[in-house]
Amino acid sequence: MTLATFGQPAVVATAGFGLTHNTLVVLGGVAAVGCGAGVVGSLTLLRKRPLVGDAAAHATLVGVAGAFLATGRRDLPTLLAGAVVSAVAGLLILVLLRRFTRTREDAATAIVIGVSFGLGLALLGGITARGMPGGGGLERFLLGQTAALTARDAALLAVISLLAIVLVMAVRKELLLVAFDPAFAAATGWPVGLLDAGLMVLIAVMVVIGLPAAGAVLVTALVVIPPVAARQWTDRAGSMLVLAGLFGLTAAVAGVAVSGLRSGLATGPLVVLAAAAICLASVVIAPRRGWLARQFQSRIPAGDDQP
């Protein structure tokens, strides 16, 4: 047996499982995105604003379509830059709606989600209907499709995710203080509005770079489900951030890997299903907070006062 014949089947085999260099880089990028979404999402969940990410995500389509219409280009950085602009604009409208029309937060969020998503779909529909050259494929931002990602795109997503993680970890003392007790934070001189605004921009950035993996409709699950799962396992915010990052990473990688088995599968639903499976398991089997643990605990009287 010569080296050549020995080597050949191996190449065929790796290609068959999709384990090319490009696939590995894409998996790494998606892993970083899932991790970042879990970490940043934990803070919005603890700040009791889990739907802010949802509003930002639905507002991204306008930016994707707008960036394509304005530049005629369809490379990922251009489209995602447009998405960041429209996601942040959507959140700004959310804040203004609440402040100047006295609309409740949930109602204002619903308005932003509905209107911005409708506008985004209308723009995408218009581009498709006119058969604009290069306009095809924009709909992959709806449900997520990582098959089209290049190694360079994936590296970009990974770098931005890692920056977001580093940033959040650096100011987590301040962000957690504001999340726990905003009045005390303000009374002790912390710029609560600025920290909130910073967190909103970060969540907008995270859902935008989650678009290729999960799509505009489902990416919000990536910033909400892993933190909820992580909360089940720990009573410390620090470990919750780490766990949420790990769960998000796992869900993103699992979803993308499974979608790679058959070409043309949208990744978003698979990523979300993987995250949901982790969450379901956590809610049932986590020690103390989990459903099983509470079945045993419930008969022990809780809350003892000082001895």
């Binding site: 999340a179 726990f180 005390f184 009374a187 002790t188 909360r231 720990t234 009573d235 919750m240």
Partner: peptide
Amino acid sequence: VGYVPQRETVDWDFPVN
């Protein structure tokens, strides 16, 4: 200036000790 807000203004299920 030290401050003690009303107890029910925060979520006591927050993951801190």
